[in-house]
């Protein structure tokens, strides 16, 4: 199986053979045996590349993106397969002139500062989103008119949830 890993804007081709916990990996620097074991205290993984152990904790997946912790470092990379790349080519753009603002964090909408139909300037505060006792101002990325509000005050939203749609 061929994977394309994107790390800090650079692409690395990695081939992995096998299934389960014993694998074989090939990259431009050579190949090596892989063994996947539970980490210490049964938490996370210990990925062995040949004789070298790498303790890894996965923070989460988002499509082909994975975030993990290795030796105290946070890594966020995209790992794509051939199939992912073919599917991406089929995806179109949304209608010109409208953009939906999605929440970058989970939180509670404490106050809406605009109404539907309002004209907003770039950088204008649109709503207040509270998370972990801190209130965050969500501002307009560009000037436009509020086409639709998808939330009301008091709503709990997940990361990525649509907040409002702006016509530019």
């Amino acid at each position: 199986m061929l994977y394309y890993s994107q790390v800090a804007g650079q692409e690395h081709e990695v081939t992995i053979q096998g299934e389960g916990r014993h694998l074989r990996v090939k990259s431009k620097n050579g190949s090596s045996d892989v063994r996947i074991e539970p980490g210490s205290d049964g938490a996370g993984y210990c990925i062995w590349l040949g004789q070298v152990p790498h303790p890894v904790s996965v923070q989460g997946w988002s499509g082909s993106w994975v975030e993990f912790l290795v030796a105290g470092r946070q890594v966020r990379i995209q790992v794509e397969t051939e199939i992912d790349r073919l599917m991406l080519q089929g995806e179109g753009e949304t209608g010109p002139g409208t953009s939906t603002l999605n929440s970058v964090m989970p939180g509670i909408v404490t106050r809406l500062l605009v109404s539907e139909g309002d004209e907003v300037a770039q950088g204008q505060p649109l709503l207040l989103l509270e998370a972990m006792k801190m209130e965050n101002e969500v501002r307009a990325e560009s000037a436009g008119r509020i086409d639709a509000l998808h939330v009301s005050a008091g709503d709990t939203v997940d990361s990525g949830a649509p907040l409002l749609t702006v016509v530019t």
């Binding site: 992995i16 996947i36 996965v58 993990f68 290795v70 890594v75 790992v79």
Partner: peptide, 9 residues
């Protein structure tokens, strides 16, 4: 990182 990411996937 690239190798570990691919192994995880």
């Amino acid at each position: 990182s690239a190798i570990l990411g691919a192994i995880l996937r």
